[in-house]
């Protein structure tokens, strides 16, 4: 280091790398562990609770296993509920979330690329409008969306869930930022000089360089639609079309005191646990694309 000059952040980072002990910060470590606990404890509770029957749920400590291991009994109860309605709901959720995530990723990638790489009249205005719509919570839009779909005659169909979920303003924003950084203008220029069409440049160069960003958008919309409760609740009236969220809420309602009510807490909890397993798997599987993408961005010069 040269005396008298202010070290750049990069130099500081390099210094720290040379002295691993310096990197430790008790406060940060504690905060990270707090964060881990905050996110993982509910999951742990859910996993443990799904092995209990109702009696154990109310008599044993939440983070300790119950007197009996009832996980498989709970699963049997869950699958037998209304002749396998749980499978149907799972299938619906996979369909809605999968189709919406693929559609949202495609749309956001194309739009983000266009905003990043093309000059066209109204670009700033349209982009500002998209940015602005991020600020409007989806819940506030659910009712107007219902009215629109009602007049189109599409309520109580899968389209009523999939089409609104394909539009992802946040995805467009993310892909614009990502496309700007990851697709070099020089590369596009070179391809143009070689005579490639804009469509071909987008699919052969743009899309390939944007894969990590696309995975991010895909995961965000997958999780968003998978967990969406309000939109399917108002759009769908046929229980055969319910996704897991609304279906599990209906199952839970059986435990509301009233005529014919039965306590099905253990069944609902097991259903909730199983319903998040595919999401965890999707994250673990797609994580490597994600991580490599983030790292790519940071080392590029």
């Amino acid at each position: 280091m040269i005396a008298g000059t202010v070290p750049t952040s990069r130099q500081i980072l390099r210094n720290r790398r040379r002295h691993p002990r310096d990197r430790r910060s008790l406060l940060l470590t504690a905060l990270v562990w707090l964060g881990v606990a905050y996110f993982l404890l509910p999951l742990l509770w859910l996993a443990i609770a799904s092995t209990k029957d109702n009696a154990d749920l109310f008599t044993t400590f939440g983070f300790a296993f119950g007197d009996e291991f009832n996980f498989f009994n709970n699963i049997v109860d869950l699958l037998e509920f209304r002749d396998g309605a749980f499978w149907r709901w799972t299938g619906n959720t996979i369909l809605y979330a999968g189709a919406s995530a693929v559609g949202a990723t495609a749309l956001a990638t194309a739009a983000g690329y266009a905003f990043a790489k093309f000059e066209f009249p109204g670009r700033r205005f349209i982009f500002s409008a998209i940015l602005g719509s991020i600020m409007i919570p989806a819940t506030a839009l659910a009712l107007p969306t219902y009215l629109v779909f009602s007049s189109l005659g599409m309520v109580n169909t899968p389209w009523a869930i999939i089409i609104p979920s394909i539009v992802s303003p946040f995805g467009v924003y993310l892909m614009r930022v990502y496309a700007e950084d990851s697709v070099p203008n020089s590369l596009i220029e070179a391809a143009r000089i070689d005579g490639a069409s804009e469509v071909r440049i987008f699919f052969s160069i743009g899309v390939r360089l944007m894969v990590p960003g696309m995975v991010t958008v895909f995961l965000f919309s997958l999780v968003g639609v998978w967990n969406n409760f309000f939109l399917p609740l108002i759009m769908l009236s046929s229980s055969d079309l319910y996704p897991l969220t609304v279906g599990l809420a209906q199952l839970q309602a059986l435990s509301t005191g009233g005529g014919g009510s039965t306590a099905v807490f253990s069944t609902v909890i097991t259903g909730s646990f199983i319903s998040i397993v595919p999401l965890v798997v999707a994250f673990l599987f797609l994580q490597r694309y994600w991580e490599s993408g983030l790292a790519d961005g940071s080392t590029k010069e």
Partner: peptide, 24 residues
């Protein structure tokens, strides 16, 4: 379930419901 409440003044659907939550 653990006996700190020794009773429930409830409706005729209560007996079946209670059975499901306090099996022990």
């Amino acid at each position: 379930a653990n006996g700190t409440l020794a009773g429930w003044l409830t409706a005729a659907w209560g007996p079946a419901f209670l059975q499901g939550t306090a099996a022990d």
